[in-house]
C-alpha cells in the first residue's frame, strides 16, 4: 500500500469520555454532565488547533455500557443527553471505550494518521460487578496494540481512590468536593483543558505528551502506583 493517501486524511486525536451513569449519578452530577457536554463541544469547536484534530466518543457505563457517541468530528456531533441507570461495572465501560476508539480509528480509513488515543474515565462509585475489570484495562492500554490508549481517571463521591489509581495509565485524580455537581463540573473542565493542551502539543515529531493541567481546581492528583511505574 502506498504511504501516500489519495484522499485527504488529516491526523486526528481520538478521545473517549467514559462516564459512570449508575444511579448514584442521578441528580446534580448527571445534570452537570448534560450541561457540560454541549459546552465542551462549543469550546473545542471554537479552537482550531483543537477542533481540527480532536475526535470525540462518549461511552456510558452502569451494569452495561453504551457507545452513545461514536468517535466523531466534534463540530458535527450531536451531544447525547445521559440518564442514570443500574449499577457500576468498570469492565464493560472500559471495553466499550476501547471498542469505540478502535472502530473509530479504523473508520478513518487505511493510512490515516492519528495520535495516541486517550480515555477520560469518570466515576463516583466502586466497581460492583462480578468480573475482573483489570483485564479489560490491560487490553485497551497495551503498548503492543497500535490502538492502545492512555487512561486519565477521575473519582469523586464514593469512588475508591486506589481503584481510580489502578484504572489510569499515569494520571489519576480525586476530588473531595462535597457538592457532586460542582465536582463533575470541575472534572469536565479539567478534561477539556487536557484535550486542548494535549492537542496543542502535537507540534513536533515527538510531541503530544498527554498533559492534564489542574490550575484552579480542587482536584488532587493521586500518586503513581507500581503498575504505572512499570
Amino acid at each position: 500500500m502506498s504511504a501516500f493517501s489519495n484522499v485527504e486524511r488529516p491526523a486526528v486525536f481520538p478521545v473517549c469520555l467514559c462516564i459512570d451513569v449508575s444511579y448514584s449519578m442521578q441528580g446534580p452530577p448527571m445534570t452537570a454532565v448534560n450541561d457540560a457536554l454541549p459546552e465542551i463541544k462549543a469550546a473545542i469547536k471554537s479552537d482550531p488547533s483543537t477542533g481540527e484534530i480532536a475526535r470525540l466518543a462518549v461511552v456510558t457505563f452502569s451494569d452495561q455500557a453504551d457507545i452513545v457517541l461514536p468517535l466523531t468530528d466534534i463540530a458535527f456531533a450531536d451531544m447525547p443527553v445521559l440518564s442514570p441507570q443500574g449499577g457500576t461495572n468498570f469492565d464493560v465501560g472500559l471495553r466499550a471505550s476501547g471498542d469505540a476508539l478502535r472502530d473509530g480509528i479504523k473508520g478513518l480509513g487505511k493510512g490515516s494518521a492519528y495520535h495516541q488515543p486517550v480515555i477520560f474515565f469518570i466515576s463516583d462509585g466502586e466497581h460492583n460487578a462480578d468480573v475482573d475489570w483489570t483485564h479489560a484495562r490491560g487490553q485497551i492500554t497495551s503498548k503492543e496494540d497500535k490502538y492502545g490508549a492512555q487512561i486519565v481517571s477521575f473519582g469523586f463521591g464514593k469512588a475508591n481512590r486506589e481503584t481510580i489509581q489502578q484504572v489510569s495509565t499515569g494520571f489519576a485524580f480525586f476530588t473531595d468536593e462535597s457538592d457532586p455537581g460542582t465536582a463533575v463540573r470541575e472534572i469536565l473542565r479539567t478534561v477539556l483543558r487536557s484535550i486542548r493542551t494535549t492537542s496543542s502539543s502535537f507540534s513536533s515529531a515527538t510531541g503530544g505528551a498527554l498533559s492534564v493541567p489542574l490550575d484552579g481546581t480542587k482536584l488532587t492528583q493521586l500518586p503513581l502506583t507500581q503498575h504505572m511505574v512499570n
Binding site: I40, S46, D47, S49, R189, R193, R196, T197, S200, S201
Partner: peptide, 19 residues
C-alpha cells in the same frame, strides 16, 4: 459564563492552558 470560557480564562490561551 460557561465551561468553555472557564477553560480559556483559566488558561490565558486555548493553545497551552496552564502550562
Amino acid at each position: 459564563g460557561d465551561l468553555a470560557t472557564d477553560a480559556v480564562l483559566a488558561s490565558g490561551t486555548p493553545g497551552t492552558p496552564g502550562t
